[in-house]
Design a protein around this nucleic acid. Structure first.
Length: 787
DNA sequence: ATAGGGTTAG
């Protein structure tokens, strides 16, 4: 037995409570609270009773409190029953409050409702502490309606703000934010004075429901009441505004906050991610590190999601490594967003590797992996995975996962399977298909060219078709040239969305495939005359870990059309030669380098042609990969390009070449323009690749190059040009193959160059980007803003 | 006594 205060090092709450409430500084057991277990209780009781300590009520309370707040709150129940049985103690309101709070912490509805009965029996249920503890207990056990019942059946004077705050929080926790808002209104009607916690909770409810008006009202109330915009209130304000689609307002609140912790930063970053401002999200993440605030798993999850959505693989990989270096990323949400990011960036193997390494998987995990397989064309794998999930029977499918399953069916042309899963969704899992699911089905039927069936399906839908549904149908009409149906769908879109450009582009494409060029023109000019405008598309390119964001401007519209038409032509060629798709020849890793080298030779030739550096007769029109290209035929020119590109073969095979650059100089040998081919060949990639898919990916570069001239600058006369290769690491001096390559002393620009992307692609294991580097113009060019 | 941010989507 220990009765000396010296031994109590004050480390645990149990001992410190004893000390603060008791001047005698006496201890009844020298075991820290964290290692107390049930078998200590009788000892505790007997020693306390013997020494007469526990019969003093404040001490009973402090022991109970310590047990209730400790790692095993249920100990307080046992101790209480021992006290009642052996020390004849009756429960007062305070002990009851502690016991109920312990039941909330476990949480145990069973024990909690027993204490509820006990408080009614002892007429203590109207004590405001007991009342609030009961409300909290039902809320914590996810019985918000019961919590509400307790409040409503108590006398008015017994409840206060805390009661209402707890009710509101309980509805939010139970996934009923609308009920939370209702309670807030009721609370106002009963003229209960709100406090900071009320507003904080209501802001969360607004964020969940998108109740923008109530949210702004809360903001006003924060200011009117003179509440400080601290980290708590600030975070929920930022989150509320972002979720209600008012990112600008969120940013304004964020910028004005006097103090910011991880949660504030994460709210703002997540706000950007959720509203498609991916680059801003990444920039904020950098600012956060500069501000010296450490990221946690929530931060990483949302930044990784941004990377995935803009295809920034390098940055995504950096974040992955950052996690490992900072002990982060252990939470499932981070793993999920990494799987999603790798899939979206085209590295399904890496995604699946992470997926397989997980011991725990939630709905998100399965959804992102199924989606990842589906979007990378591995449709059977996606369906197999869904079957595996159902077999494991640990995770309950939700609506979103079925979108992934249906997308897989749609992309894989698996009509039967699509119907099967669509029906199972409601029959087996009691999930009501939403408009998105109907959209998937229309897409599925349309892609399978079952247009009549798709049309009938739309007619039979229990929900009104939206623009996406009509667009899927309209898109499907293109392949079958069904002009009449296409026009009907376009009309529906026009009705639903008169201000947007709607189905015009798609409709004009249907006309184009049926060679109705007059109609194509009518639609196009109609678009220009009326106020319909296309929302600018946005793309990203990642250069040395730096993200560049681009909006499709009106100027580039003409080229877009040319590219689309060329692509349609290619599509038709592919359809005509569909045996290629049925029996795809595969090539090995060694052959990949050869394909790339051949491609580079042609591409460099096209670049030089495009710049008009030599007279056109130095080139010849040739067919390469089914597109028309300009191949150099002048002996010296062709010889230079051939030897330079083919000399790269051994280094590309070893994965040593990072960039192949065509540089144009002025007469002072200062670069005027660079065409950069950034290259990555994954060396660890094991399996073979389809030659057709690699060719298809590379061909897109040649098509883009053919129309890239307007993006480039006029060359000064008497300049020069050369082919340069940037190596990841330099080959040893003695190597024979390396002797062709000499270090170049290209002058550098003073300012970072202006980057213009031309094309990027990812076709495992090859990734390639083509972009222009030009010296910066003095005045920055703003991207066109959205209408 | 009650309290903030995060991952999937046709």
């Amino acid at each position: 037995m220990c009765l000396s205060s010296r031994i109590l090092n004050g480390k645990t709450r149990y001992f410190s409570t004893l000390r603060s409430s008791h001047t005698e500084n006496k201890c009844i057991l020298s075991v820290p609270v964290s290692s107390l277990s049930h078998h200590h209780l009788p000892i505790l009781l007997s020693r306390a009773t013997v020494s007469g300590l526990l019969l003093k009520l404040p001490l009973v309370h402090s022991v109970l409190r310590s047990l209730s707040l400790g790692p095993t709150p249920s100990l307080s129940f046992s101790f209480l029953s021992l006290l009642r049985r052996f020390a004849n103690m009756t429960l007062d309101n305070y002990s009851l409050n502690i016991a109920i709070s312990a039941a909330a912490r476990v949480p145990s509805l069973d024990v909690g409702s027993q204490f509820h009965a006990l408080s009614l029996k002892l007429s203590l249920a109207s004590d405001s502490f007991v009342l609030n503890a009961l409300i909290n207990m039902y809320s914590s056990c996810n019985y918000p309606a019961s919590a509400r019942l307790v409040l409503d059946s108590a006398p008015r004077w017994a409840s206060d703000v805390v009661s209402w705050n707890t009710i509101i929080a309980g509805y939010i926790r139970g996934g009923m934010p609308n009920k939370a808002l209702q309670s807030f209104h009721q609370m106002a009607k009963e003229q209960v004075r709100l406090d900071e916690v009320t507003l904080l909770n209501v802001l969360v409810a607004c964020a969940r429901t998108g109740a923008m008006k109530v949210g702004s009202l809360c903001h006003a109330l924060v200011v009117l009441n003179g509440f400080e915009i601290n980290c708590y209130i600030g975070s929920s304000l930022v989150s509320m505004y972002a979720k209600c689609g008012m990112v600008e307002e969120a940013r304004r609140v964020f910028n004005r906050m006097p103090e910011r912790n991880v949660v504030c930063w994460t709210s703002m970053i997540a706000g950007c991610t959720q509203s498609g401002r991916f680059k801003e999200a990444v920039d904020l993440f950098r600012d956060m590190q500069i501000a010296g605030v450490k990221a946690d798993d929530a931060t990483i999850a949302t930044v990784v999601s941004s990377c995935g959505q803009m295809g920034a693989l390098d940055l995504g990989r950096y974040l992955h490594a950052y996690c490992d270096g900072h002990g982060l990323g252990k939470e499932l949400s981070v793993k999920n967003s990494l799987i999603d990011m790798y899939s979206k960036c085209g590295d399904v193997n890496k995604a699946y590797q992470i997926f397989r390494g997980l011991t725990k998987r939630d709905v998100f995990t399965w959804t992102v992996m199924i989606m990842g397989f589906a979007m990378n064309g591995l449709c059977v794998e996606a369906l197999d995975l869904f079957a595996q999930m159902e077999g494991e029977d640990k995770v309950m499918p939700n609506e979103v996962i079925f979108l992934g399953v249906l997308t897989a069916c749609s992309h894989g042309g698996l009509v039967e399977q699509g119907y099967h899963h669509f029906h199972r969704m409601s029959k087996v899992y009691n999930l009501v298909p939403r408009i998105e699911h109907y959209g998937c089905m229309v897409d599925l039927l349309g892609r399978a060219k079952l247009l009549a069936e798709a049309e009938q399906f739309i007619k039979d839908m229990p929900v009104a078709p939206d623009v996406v549904v009509w667009r899927s149908l309209l898109f499907a009409c293109r392949a079958s040239g069904q002009v009449g149906l296409a026009e009907y769908a376009a009309e529906r879109i026009e009705q639903l969305e008169p201000k947007r450009c709607g189905g015009h582009v798609l409709l004009s494409n249907v006309y184009a495939t049926t060679s109705r060029w007059v109609d194509v023109n009518n639609v196009r000019t109609g678009m220009g005359n009326s106020r319909t405008s296309k929302k600018p598309g946005c793309s990203f390119i990642e250069v040395d870990g730096c993200i560049h964001e681009f909006f499709a401007g009106d100027e580039s519209h003409f080229e877009t059309e040319a590219i689309c038409n060329t692509l349609f032509g290619i599509n038709e060629l592919l359809v005509a030669e569909s045996f290629l798709i049925l029996l795809p020849p595969t090539i090995t890793k060694g052959q990949i380098a050869q394909v790339i080298v051949d491609f580079l030779e042609v591409a460099v030739s096209c670049v030089v042609f495009l710049k008009g550096f030599y007279p056109p007769r130095a080139f010849e029109r040739r067919r390469y990969m089914n597109v028309v290209v300009q191949k150099a035929v002048h002996p010296q020119l062709a010889g230079y390009i051939h030897s330079a590109t083919s000399g790269l073969l051994p280094f590309i095979q070893k994965g040593l070449v990072e960039r192949v650059v065509v540089i144009f100089y002025d007469k002072a040998h200062v670069p005027v323009e660079k065409f950069v081919f950034k290259l990555a060949v994954n060396q660890s990639y094991g399996s073979k690749i389809e030659e057709a898919s690699l060719e298809f990916a590379l061909r897109a570069f040649l098509i883009k190059l053919a129309v890239a001239e307007p993006l480039t600058r006029t060359l000064p006369s008497d300049g020069s040009w050369e082919i340069a290769a940037y190596f990841r690491s330099l080959p040893p001096d003695g190597e024979k193959e390396a002797q062709l390559w000499i270090p170049t002393d290209t002058k550098q620009w003073m300012q970072p160059p202006q980057i213009t992307p031309i094309k990027s692609m990812s076709c495992d294991p090859v990734k390639m980007q083509l972009y222009l580097e030009q010296p910066s113009r003095t005045e920055p060019r703003d991207p066109p803003t959205e209408p």
